[in-house]
Design a protein around this nucleic acid. Structure first.
Lengths: 206, 206
DNA sequence: CTAATTCTGTGTCGATCGTTACAGATATAT
DNA sequence: ATATATCTGTAACGATCGACACAGAATTAG
């Protein structure tokens, strides 16, 4: 049973996916309505009728991104059997996902709105929260590693989780600067070299 | 002997320092001429007469930033005696410089223009080059460490340098998200935990 | 003094920003 | 068929963008 009135002339999900790519490439402020409507193949009144406003559209594109692109990383992390494999998978998947051809390099959540601005402050705060949530999720995964005796109970899980998230955020910028997949994998491998010292019973100093 | 014509009514260097802070906080695109003239205490024709254009002003602010703020980090790095101390100083100074009160958090070079854009493409490319140069400088410092037998000749200096620069870039985002100095220091310490495995004669796997 | 030069402040340029008024088109409900 | 509802495209809104024309003010050169 269809809705009343003239039916929509475009695929809403497909248009949202296009919008996500524009925000991903250009950032929240950098993506103009002209960019968005052009990529989505619709006129601005259709966009406003379907998605509300630019900010509402970004929020929906963000959810779409977290579900699809984020799932490529965190879905694989969820299938690992040890805490080390979880972090290794997290970083190595990141290296792959950040360097796919015909996708913007780096992460939408990290890059979209880094500067405080009157017009994007609520969006920026949402992204800050999303980034903080990534630390929380990774720390929870590490906590399971402590339970399973893979990580020393003396390890500072907050610091370890924040460290690996920081590396991933740096990888977003490296990807934006044109780093190859191999280079990102080398960065990931270097970051993983800290795992032993960070999780061993007695933290060794240099 | 003074110049001909009406003398300038403001301190050019002080105005440049103000402009630098605005670009630092808001980014290149995010800093409007109204923001800049307001912070610099001058009208836009004075700005154009003294600095050329917004892009020229940014370029001068960038040089100013690299010399002053960048010097706080690299100056201290230059005074270290071992490669490890150099990297340690690099990251620990970063933690301090990125979290000073009444200064924008994070790094201007990293954050100012991450998204490709018609109006900021040349600026963006300049920043990409500056970031690449940081890798080169750090790698050169590591090369000295190899000469002095502090680092194994088998170590991958490109990967190590790019890794530590990546960590610093991630710290820019963490700082923007409100990370404390202590948190950044913990991230730096975690990154330094990889030093042993990365530079030892036989790279150990987990 | 006059002429030449350079800076300052007001005001405004065309372009673009996000957003929406409006009329016509296309569907369902009765 | 008529009424109602929703979407589409054109066209335009006020606000802001970076940049500058212009006239007056302030200095030096001769």
């Amino acid at each position: 049973m269809a809705e009343r009135g003239r039916p929509r002339n475009f695929d809403k999900d497909a248009a949202l996916a296009r919008a996500m790519e524009v925000f991903w490439l250009r950032g929240y402020e950098g993506a103009s309505m002209a960019d968005l409507t052009s990529a989505m193949g619709i006129a601005s009144p259709s966009l406003y009728a379907a998605f509300g406003s630019k900010e509402d559209l970004f929020r929906k594109a963000l959810d779409y991104y977290v579900a699809s692109e984020g799932g490529l990383i965190w879905g694989a992390v969820a299938e690992t059997h040890t805490a080390y494999q979880a972090v290794e998978t997290f970083l190595m998947r990141t290296a792959r996902v950040f360097t796919r051809r015909s996708r913007p390099p780096g992460c939408l959540v990290v890059l979209s709105a880094l500067h405080p601005n009157e017009h994007s402050e609520t969006v920026r705060r949402e992204l800050v929260q999303r980034r903080a949530q990534a630390v929380t999720e990774l720390r929870e995964r590490l906590r399971q590693g402590v339970e399973r005796r893979e990580i020393s109970p003396a390890a500072d899980l907050d610091a370890i989780a924040q460290y690996y998230i920081t590396v991933q955020q740096g990888m977003s910028i490296q990807a934006r600067d044109g780093a190859t997949r191999k280079q990102l994998e080398q960065i990931a491998a270097a970051a993983l070299a800290a795992w032993g010292p960070l999780t061993a019973p007695t933290a060794r100093k240099h």
